[in-house]
Simulated scan of single mutants.
Amino acid sequence: MSHLPAVLITGASSGIGAVYADRFAQRGHDLVLVARDKTRLDAIAARLRSSYGVAVDVRQADLTLQPDLASVEALLREDARIGILINNAGIAQSGDFLQQNGQRIEQLIALNVTAPTRLAAAMAPRLAQAGTGAIVNLGSVVGLAPELGMSVYGASKSFVLFLSQGLSLELGPKGVYVQAVLPAATRTEIWERSGVDVNTLPEVMEVDELVDAALIGFDRRELVTIPPLHVAERWDALNGARQGLLSDVRQAHAAERYRLPA
Rank of each mutant, 00 (worst) to 15 (best):
V224Q: 10
A121T: 06
A180T: 09
R47L: 13
G133N: 03
L210M: 13
L163P: 05
D79F: 00
M1Y: 00
A21P: 07
P183S: 05
L238H: 08
V224W: 00
T10R: 09
D236H: 08
R23E: 15
K38H: 05
P183L: 07
A92P: 00
V141R: 08
D96N: 12
Q107S: 15
H29E: 12
L85I: 04
R104I: 05
W191T: 08
G131N: 06
L167A: 11
R187V: 03
G172E: 03
G172D: 06
P146W: 08
L63G: 00
A134Q: 13
Q103I: 11
S94P: 02
G83Q: 02
S13G: 10
A70Q: 14
G244C: 03
Q103T: 15
D30W: 03
E73V: 04
S247Y: 05
A255H: 13
W235P: 01
D96I: 04
L260P: 11
L119P: 05
G175V: 02
S168R: 11
Y153T: 06
L119K: 03
A120W: 12
S51A: 15
L148F: 10
A121L: 14
R27C: 02
L238E: 03
A61P: 07
F162C: 12
S71L: 10
E206Q: 13
A134H: 11
V142N: 13
M205I: 09
E170C: 01
T117S: 12
Y258E: 15
R104K: 14
D79M: 01
R36I: 06
L33Q: 10
V7S: 00
L171K: 08
T64I: 07
N239L: 13
S156F: 06
G175T: 01
L201F: 03
V181K: 10
E192M: 02
R40H: 08
L182N: 03
H230S: 13
G17N: 01
R221N: 12
G95P: 06
R187H: 08
G172P: 02
I91W: 02
L171Q: 10
L76N: 02
D62M: 02
A184M: 05
E73G: 04
D212V: 08
A145K: 14
A121V: 01
Q251W: 01
H253I: 11
E106T: 14
R220P: 07
S2N: 08
R49Y: 03
T188E: 00
A124T: 05
T186D: 09
V113R: 08
P227F: 07
A12S: 14
V7E: 04
Y52F: 15
R77A: 15
L85G: 04
Q100A: 09
A252F: 13
P228H: 02
N101G: 15
I9K: 00
A124R: 00
D37A: 05
G240D: 15
V141K: 04
I16V: 14
D212Y: 02
Q60N: 05
T64V: 12
L223Y: 09
R118W: 02
H230C: 02
